[in-house]
Design a protein around this nucleic acid. Sequence first.
DNA 1: GCGCTAACTGGCCGACCGGTCAATTGCCTT
DNA 2: AAGGCAATTGACCGGTCGGCCAGTTAGCGC
Lengths: 201, 201
Amino acid sequence: MNRKTQTRDPELTRARILDAAEELFVEQGFSAVKLSELARAAEVTKSLIHHHFGSKEQLWEAVKNRAFERYFQAQMAMFEEAGEPDALLLRRSVEAYFHFLRDNPGVVRLFAWTHLEGDNHCSDLDNQLVGAGAEWIRQTQRRGLLRSDVNPTHVIAVFVMTCTQWFEAKCHHQHWPDMGSDEAFLEDFMKIFMEGVTPRK
Amino acid sequence: MNRKTQTRDPELTRARILDAAEELFVEQGFSAVKLSELARAAEVTKSLIHHHFGSKEQLWEAVKNRAFERYFQAQMAMFEEAGEPDALLLRRSVEAYFHFLRDNPGVVRLFAWTHLEGDNHCSDLDNQLVGAGAEWIRQTQRRGLLRSDVNPTHVIAVFVMTCTQWFEAKCHHQHWPDMGSDEAFLEDFMKIFMEGVTPRK
DNA sequence: GCGCTAACTGGCCGACCGGTCAATTGCCTT
DNA sequence: AAGGCAATTGACCGGTCGGCCAGTTAGCGC
């Protein structure tokens, strides 16, 4: 079963289409992408796209599903290799999330497009993730290592939204006067955030 | 010069087109909007759109310019009626910004679309705004009322991005387990943020 | 080998896209 | 009163969009 010598390979064809589609959708959004352009990029005929995915909309869904699955798997993996729920774990999680977004700019843009569409079909997986994270924070609060007068879900929301927006709108605020690099910003954000969630006597 | 009895009123026509265009662009983004649909919504002919704005792209620019000018004027007005630079001013500014975004969802979406386009043509006005805000924070830091080991621009970035993303991705986070209302989230965010920027002995 | 299925092709389609243009009409100036 | 000009109209354009379909061909089970 050598794929190099085969003239037909539906799996590979599907993958080629998905890859090219993801690149174009991430770059331009759903409606700006033309199937002819996509066909050229994926080196397949337009008809083949319809054969494998049905329609442009269905292809868009497939692209989003694949990307989000990758995202959730990466996040879940992060969860599994974590240790005791304490402040350091929270700090490390935020940093890991920030760096994940930095290294996966496509995911950030895909999220942004789907948000603008009002799409929330990925909420099942997402709720799982957020629920697990919130539970950790709750445990850390109970152990007295984080302040208890804030909703754990809101704590997650604050750092997720800051990280997301940092990369989503980078083209915008990177020109702000005195704005620092990714790492400089993360450092200052961590100072503010960790200080903000630390319990007071 | 009664506009009601006039059969022609270019100013009003322009405004009608701009209004309808803003609504559609905000909703669907640039490329998804069709001029025919827009013409119907604005109750003008398609040719009239071209007569007044030249092309779809130029109309998009005009819509963005008008909206952003409104945005900057609102922000600048907020600046002018402010008092002494202290922590309370910062708190009030964040709350005002949050509520402004809540009351102007179109602006949030317009920002999001332009970010995805990589458009940063509004940076002049924006830099002014951020520069002025950062200067305030710097003064407050000098007076010992805010911690001094963080970049003032980053402080602004943190709350601007959190507020922006809250409304931009609302369709997404609002279904997270235990997620609170706008006000409940703002309250928790303010707790974390203000505690995070308060100086320590 | 043989035949069935699915992968794949090229040509085609109607719809409709953004944009143009010549002609008409209302308003302002003088 | 008239002339000029911008506002406005509707017919029209070439291009291309997403999608379809009849036909061809490769691979796989029998």
